[in-house]
Write a protein that binds this DNA or RNA. Structure first.
Lengths: 190, 190
DNA sequence: CAGGAGACCGTACGCTTGTACAGCGACTTG
DNA sequence: CAAGTCGCTGTACAAGCGTACGGTCTCCTG
């Protein structure tokens, strides 16, 4: 996944993946058959991960658990880096994830009257939020800190809350974000 | 540029570029030498274009000219498609453009008190806005309309104005956007 | 203990790739 | 009109690619 994220679908080689994994190229082929099936396996893996963690994050009280947050902070960056590439590399799975996020966003965005309809807003807002992840390299450079680090994530979360219209985001979202950031800080300090 | 935009740096072949241009692969090499220098030429071209048109758009009254707006709407999409790819493909020129946009954004964003500092806000806002362009394929699919078409651009502009905090965007920006959209509609109707 | 499954490897093959090179015709220039 | 420039081409080649295949070793199982 790291190799796909860094070099893109056509830029990664099976030999490169094998070397990074410390095995022979033949073993990669033995397990995944073809390069396309290796990509599919990555797609499936990140799709399942996001579906599982998104569900836990939405309806679960797990976001208050320092251990859970720490685990997410450890496992999420590789997934997001892969997703960032897949979103512009023409992966069908990434398109599905995007559409799922649009649907979730549309359900949670406050439908207050404005210039655009709720669906258009949800699509645009999803693209905007994902833009930060997709351009994490540039964001990190601009911030002088890794976006996927604790400090970077906090700053970006605060800036995002500054930037989006208050009437759009559901009630209690600001507090929820603050709670997660606090739990994250505690986990970082320990 | 279209080939680079669709297939990425490592996915495009000189033979593919040549075929698309209706010439022989050797001619591409004759003019640009190497694939890397071809990419550099594209980078330079889009950089110069954006610098020129951004300057005209910011301090010029040209945005009220229907002919000018029509020309932009014809020339911009290929540039933006290329930029979208270059931003995640690790192009040095794209990084420079991103940084330039951050600087411009920081200069124009209203520096009202909030949770994040002005620079962080500018970086995040730049990534968000570019996210729409970078994920134009997904946005277009979600909208059911081409993002680079007149209808799509209008809907996205309206949704963006709905989504960003009113205190952040400078005075008169809404009216300016409306004016451009109106001129665009006139040009389209003709 | 025989044997099968599976993780793992080295080698090989055909194809595509970037690039080098020699050449051809049209047009410009002295 | 000779000569050079330039747009343009076909061919050739080494490197790297995805993938097929046969083989080795370890471990589990009957």
């Amino acid at each position: 996944m790291a190799e796909f994220a860094e070099r893109g679908m056509s830029g990664t080689t099976i030999r490169g993946v094998a070397e990074r994994a410390g095995v022979s190229p033949a073993l990669v082929q033995h397990h995944f058959g073809t390069k396309e099936r290796l990509r599919s396996a990555c797609d499936e893996h990140v799709t399942e991960y996001l579906r599982r963690e998104a569900a836990a994050g939405i309806d679960g009280g797990e976001v208050g658990d320092p251990g859970y947050v720490a685990a997410i902070r450890r496992t999420a960056p590789p997934m997001l880096r892969y997703l960032a590439r897949a979103l512009v590399d023409g992966s069908a799975a990434a398109a599905g994830i995007f559409d799922d996020l649009v649907e979730i966003t549309e359900r949670y965005l406050v439908d207050q009257p404005g210039r655009a309809d709720a669906h258009t807003r949800a699509v645009v807002f999803t693209a905007m939020r994902l833009g930060i992840t997709v351009m994490h390299e540039h964001v990190s450079r601009g911030l002088g800190t890794d976006l996927f680090g604790a400090a970077g994530a906090t700053r970006v979360a605060h800036a995002t809350l500054d930037l989006v219209a208050p009437g759009i985001v559901p009630d209690g979202m600001t507090e929820k974000v603050d709670a997660v950031l606090e739990v994250m800080d505690e986990g970082e300090a320990r």
